[in-house]
């Protein structure tokens, strides 16, 4: 990005910028500027829609595309069935949306379209966004838990077989670990995505600075840095999938708590 100046700001990629002159948009006095982040959310949504739409031919013998879409829905379905059981089926739409939304966002953020002068934006590297997703997941857990078990949902904090004198301290610990869930959920994704992108940008600044400093240093610094970038890019693709999976998996585990208590 700022390569012309010979300097790369590894944080600039997370900068929000209103697009289409929308910085003044407001609803009820609240700013809703359509930023690059929102723009990439839109791209993500459209791409997921296109992906799933391609798999809706409903053929008895599926083509490759339909097979791919079905393997994704089957993956989520299996995960929910394994973690929640038969009751998990009704959460497939939510967990599928969550998983695909995060997965596509992570992968789109890694697109090398910087080569074309465009700036990919990874909105999962913003805790405002991951926080919203985590709070939605957490709210579902609360709503399902209280809907199904009412006040008995609080027995979630007292595991079976707890000795009587230990009930109070253990309930406290369980309660706090429960409250921390949305934060850990949101922060895990946000940190993983941000760290990877910062690392890549830092390495790319090594490459650029090394080249600018001359042939000798360029060979010594830029070449290894570039090799490391290639390797870490591959790792980041893996992380993109893993983080989406972890988010969906933890959500399903939390929903399982709400469905079945302990």
């Amino acid at each position: 990005m700022a390569a012309e100046a010979g300097k790369v700001d590894p944080m600039k990629q997370f900068q929000l910028e209103p697009m289409f002159g929308s910085s003044g948009w407001e609803i009820a006095g609240v700013n809703i500027a359509f930023t690059n982040s929102a723009f990439w959310m839109a791209i993500t949504t459209v791409l997921i829609w296109a992906f799933v739409f391609g798999g809706m031919k409903r053929q008895l013998v599926p083509g490759r595309w339909q097979m791919a879409v079905e393997s994704f829905t089957g993956f989520i379905d299996d995960m929910l069935e394994a973690n929640i059981g038969k009751a998990g089926r009704k959460y497939v739409p939510y967990v599928f949306s969550l998983f695909m939304f995060i997965l596509f966002a992570n992968l789109l953020g890694l697109l090398p379209i910087g080569l074309l002068g465009l700036h990919p934006f990874t909105f999962t590297s913003h805790f405002t966004v991951t926080g919203v997703l985590a709070i939605i997941s957490f709210s579902i857990v609360l709503v399902v838990g209280f809907w199904k078990h009412g006040i008995k949902f609080f027995t979630l904090f007292v595991p079976h077989g707890t000795p009587v004198p230990m009930i109070l301290p253990i309930a406290l610990i369980e309660f706090f670990s429960f409250l921390i869930r949305p934060f850990s959920l949101a922060l895990r994704l946000f940190v993983a995505m941000m760290a990877g992108h910062v690392l890549l940008k830092v390495l790319s600044s090594f490459v650029i600075d090394g080249v600018n400093a001359g042939v000798g240093i360029g060979l010594m610094v830029s070449l290894p840095s570039f090799a490391l970038m290639v390797a870490i890019s591959a790792l980041e693709i893996l992380v993109a999938g893993i983080q989406a999976y972890v988010f969906a998996l933890l959500t399903s585990l939390y929903i399982n708590d709400a469905e079945h208590l302990h």
């Binding site: 809703i32 929102a38 739409p93 695909m100």
Partner: peptide, 23 residues
């Protein structure tokens, strides 16, 4: 506010159109 708003909008679209409608 913009981040939260657009997250809700686009994740909501994803959930209701794709998750509820197509999946």
């Amino acid at each position: 506010s913009s981040q939260i708003f657009w997250s809700l909008v686009f994740f909501g679209l994803t959930f209701f159109v794709i998750g509820r409608g197509m999946v």
